[in-house]
Nucleic acid binder design. Structure first.
Ligand SMILES: NC(=O)c1ccc[n+]([C@@H]2O[C@H](COP(=O)([O-])OP(=O)(O)OC[C@H]3O[C@@H](n4cnc5c(N)ncnc54)[C@H](O)[C@@H]3O)[C@@H](O)[C@H]2O)c1
Ligand SMILES: NC(=O)c1ccc[n+]([C@@H]2O[C@H](COP(=O)([O-])OP(=O)(O)OC[C@H]3O[C@@H](n4cnc5c(N)ncnc54)[C@H](O)[C@@H]3O)[C@@H](O)[C@H]2O)c1
Lengths: 235, 235
DNA sequence: GACGATTTGTGCTTTTTTGCACAAATGTGT
DNA sequence: ACACATTTGTGCAAAAAAGCACAAATCGTC
């Protein structure tokens, strides 16, 4: 856990040091990639990084990278570059990754189980704290959660206990990994239980009240987009 | 399999009936959702659909939907709407989903296995035809592939057979589901073996030669983006 | 066959995103 | 102290995407 004291002269004075009023959606969607690359550089003991280098690592142009970062504040040094650890910390702070986020996964099938097993979430600020399913034969069973160092066994809870489980574990993020038929109903219950951020893997558009965010990951769509371009190449 | 005869007076004459020179990337990224919603409507025996209705099903504005579709051609009828089957067919044709696409998955771990087991790809134009891994204990084992109706058992091949497997199965799409450390090397080999469309699940930016498309699905990033907005809500 | 109710297709405007280019700031070496 | 090489931060231009508004086309009805 980082414990930086913010010694930048600007950030204490300027508005940008705090919670910035407007960071564009396009920028937000790229911050995680920067964060990840910086974590990698930090692991490799690299102290400084230029916009050119970080851009190459993340597949964006250096100008875009600089503009993205400038929205967070003026954390680079002209003629030098960015301090890896410091920038990493600033991004994590801006994105709320200082503390861990608790995640509840609904639907412990192929995908839900893969997500639960996955060890990579921990290092990026997330902890799976609860599993919920509707299948009687699954409820009550234990599922290994997380990778090597930090494996935990989590009990699969019944769908009927959803609200209670969310309250007890204080989960803020909900993952929908159920068949498409039940996705909307599951989402509704998550929202009713207080969840306002949902990651949806079911290939359906989820309707939610204002104030609730849904992000959809549709793997088949990704393949279809690739197929579209692939077809074009043949011509 | 659809066997539409294109009877629209426009599409035979206009350039838009064939392979359209320019469909914006934003439009392409939404076509799969339209396709999916239309398939659902077709399953439910619905004959016609308005732009308003289809837009609601996919979470876009009706104006945007109409503009997207207009890029494919003029397939609606004013005052009436769109013919569900016909429109579905036109989108599938435009995206190259008439025929199935063969997919090779490299990395048969948590995620690779979940993808292989998943039955939903078949109905959306894809068939997993090969599994490849580097783990000696996995190579030679069989993995159930696809869901209910159409399960196939696929042998896990050795990484060293990658090129051969791709040639034999005629795979056009490659999925990278290996740890991040090996992702770039695996991608390089896929490209060398002739693959020009890659779906990458490893949280790293993959460098590829021109002419090769990579799409990255980074689940942790999605959660981080949600977390960012969630944090904002608290303030 | 004209009329009103619909609903598409699209020109135009506004907003968002990306890209370019360079002044401003920093470090270095003499 | 000053010239010089580097690299950031940003104003401005270009491009892409989204949104608006309405004319054009179609259907059902009288
Ligand atoms: N597995 C993949 O690779 C993959 C790929 C793309 C999309 N998806 C989508 O992800 C979702 C899950 O896929 P999967 O392969 O894990 O399916 P799955 O059938 O293996 O698992 C679904 C799980 O959800 C549970 N479930 C069903 N209804 C429920 C409800 N109302 N409440 C709680 N749990 C319920 C089931 O008991 C089951 O355990 C599906 O919507 C699928 O379309 C999966
Ligand atoms: N499981 C998830 O939910 C999840 C979520 C987000 C991201 N990811 C990413 O997806 C990738 C796979 O995740 P996972 O959980 O399935 O990991 P995993 O460790 O369970 O599986 C990885 C598989 O790749 C194989 N492998 C390793 N090196 C290889 C090589 N050079 N060639 C071929 N195969 C090789 C391993 O033998 C193993 O079977 C990782 O990059 C991970 O970061 C996974």
């Amino acid at each position: 856990m980082c414990t930086f004291v913010d010694m930048s002269p600007k950030s204490s004075a300027s508005l940008k040091g705090g919670t910035n009023p407007k960071i564009s959606e396009a920028t937000v969607s790229r911050l995680p990639a920067y964060f990840r690359a910086l974590s990698q550089l930090a692991d490799a003991q690299q102290i400084r990084v230029s916009s050119e280098e970080l851009a190459a690592l993340t597949g964006v142009s250096s100008a875009m990278l600089r503009k993205d970062l400038s929205h967070l504040g003026s954390y680079g040094t002209r003629g030098v570059g960015y301090d890896v650890e410091f920038l990493r910390y600033q991004i994590s702070r801006e994105m709320g990754l200082n503390h861990d986020w608790s995640v509840v996964i609904v639907g412990v099938g192929n995908l839900g189980r893969a997500l639960a097993h996955y060890g990579g979430f921990g290092s990026r600020g997330f902890r799976v704290v609860a599993l919920v399913d509707a299948d009687q034969t699954l409820i009550g069973t234990k599922v290994k959660c997380g990778a090597e160092g930090k494996t935990v066994e989590l009990l699969v809870h019944a769908l009927s206990d959803l609200e209670e489980v969310i309250k007890e574990t204080n989960a803020r993020l909900g993952v929908v990994a159920t068949p498409e038929q039940s996705a909307q109903a599951v989402c509704d219950r998550l929202v009713k239980a207080g969840i306002r951020s949902v990651l949806n893997f079911a290939p359906v558009y989820l309707t939610v009240p204002e104030g609730v965010d849904v992000r959809k990951v549709d793997l088949a769509s990704e393949l279809q987009i690739l197929a579209f371009h692939e077809q074009r190449k043949a011509v």
